[in-house]
Design a protein around this nucleic acid. Sequence first.
DNA 1: TATGGAGACAACCGTTGGTTGTGGCCGGGT
DNA 2: ACCCGGCCACAACCAACGGTTGTCTCCATA
Lengths: 311, 311
Amino acid sequence: MDLDILRTFVAAADAGQFQEAAAELAVTQQAVSKRIAALERDVGVRLFTRTPRGAELTIDGQAFLPHARELLRVAERAVASVRTGRRPLRVDMIASRSAASGLMRAFHRAYPEIDLDVVMLFDIEKAVAAIRSGAIDASFRAVAMPGRPLPEDIESVRVLDEPLQLLIGPAHALASARSVTIAQLTGHRIWMPGLAPGTEWAAYYDDLVAEFGLTIEATGPNFGSDALLDTIADTPALATFMGGKTRLVWPADHGLRRIPVTDPVPVYPHSLLWHRDNPHPALATLRAHLAATAAGHGAAGTWTPDWVIPR
Amino acid sequence: MDLDILRTFVAAADAGQFQEAAAELAVTQQAVSKRIAALERDVGVRLFTRTPRGAELTIDGQAFLPHARELLRVAERAVASVRTGRRPLRVDMIASRSAASGLMRAFHRAYPEIDLDVVMLFDIEKAVAAIRSGAIDASFRAVAMPGRPLPEDIESVRVLDEPLQLLIGPAHALASARSVTIAQLTGHRIWMPGLAPGTEWAAYYDDLVAEFGLTIEATGPNFGSDALLDTIADTPALATFMGGKTRLVWPADHGLRRIPVTDPVPVYPHSLLWHRDNPHPALATLRAHLAATAAGHGAAGTWTPDWVIPR
DNA sequence: TATGGAGACAACCGTTGGTTGTGGCCGGGT
DNA sequence: ACCCGGCCACAACCAACGGTTGTCTCCATA
């Protein structure tokens, strides 16, 4: 099915005749006739009843029409999402199910008229480059890792601390714990595949390891969270860290447990980054929204690496 | 833009490489390469970065991907709306802005997961034929006009009485009235273009005229409500009837007035009609919903033709 | 009854979109 | 260090699609 054909269908439905639709679309009446016939062959029903002085929609045609319009609307938005110029606010975050995702959902509820696009870049370096190039408008990241101070043209504000939780299977030694202290984790194997050196998230876990003497294995490629969850669920001796705001969707029978970590609570600090000169109006709205709804970061009893910008 | 190309894009994005996507789609790798190149030419940005061992999404590609998926979802629904078999509940009503539309909106809010299609057929005769043929599942209509008793296989229930209002321009003699009695309308010109003999709505207004001695002109073709509103707004001596639940969208400076009519209140009776044997599960839901939320019909002080099924 | 406007069908043809064949690039194994 | 294998791009070729022109039928209207 071709969007041009849908445009033809809508034009013919609006005009009530093929001839006029053809004129609008700058093609011949025969072309319109063929396109409609092709569409009808495609969907398997007759969409117009042809009369000697025009063509009117059948019942099926009437039912199909709003769907066709919707399709064209969505197509327009899809193209707009990548067209330069007035385009949706494009935001990067570390993971699709991180706490930043919850913030953006809340923002979308508050301002449903603002078009949003979410992307996930590799790390803070790519994110900063994308912000400077204008490829994205904002980014939720932890800053500023050692050796990578934020450039002067990038501004940031800390918006949310996400407490880490331990994710373990039902056969794990800590499976029945209501919560665990960081000290209790010493000696347990914690697996975080895909932890790539040089990224800000690797730097975060490096500091966590150094500070509390944990053991984190970063071996093996990251085959995605599904594969990770499967392995964790089935392996008694293995645990992993996961953002406490993560909304997991996994088969109910996995039996996975999420255990809060305390003394102190390790929190992953999300800051919003943007370019000083970015004029996107929705960016100002987002910043104002986050400032108004900002809650709990830098609270007592929490831990972050000392390179994290305090407020 | 072609939906097949979008499917190719999504498949390639999911697979992370063109080769595998090509295998899934049962075409050659070269065809996928060409399609992606065409799509990129179409939207004007590069969607993939080609590497020697695959292709990964650019930032723009990431932003475009959810839109592409949405487009395919909408396309699927569009086709489903006309496919026989499990399809959306298809409901006919007399006008897109009648009270029935409000009922269906409320139903949609209550059951957003139920797919709905609304069509507008010519009259009760077409509606009954469509219900019997299965082309529609239900219809909001006034029944049962003289000489057209409902067939035995069609069931009905009265669901809503819509009070009529007088619609007049700012220069009309009654423009400043808070309400008018039917008796006061005697001698005023009431214009209802498109009132077609033999339809149930024409029968309704015929009875209204006969009962209260009104003057209704049905001359001229109906060029749509916009044209009607324009004329009414500009013509001091002209009025028309309009459903009291109608949500009008007209330029604010039209200056149109809607005046309630009393003594008695003429109400247009909407009944839900359906086929005795229609098994569509959403139909049962709709009937239950309407039964639970049904309000005010057959109230004292209202008038309907005596052929209207009382309850 | 003649006329004009609208859609369908047929014939024709250029362009599009598929295929096969081939070459370049880069990572990993030997 | 080198070669192999996997993956994508480019070129050439060809069928099929989608457009145009020309013509016919149908029916409402004058």
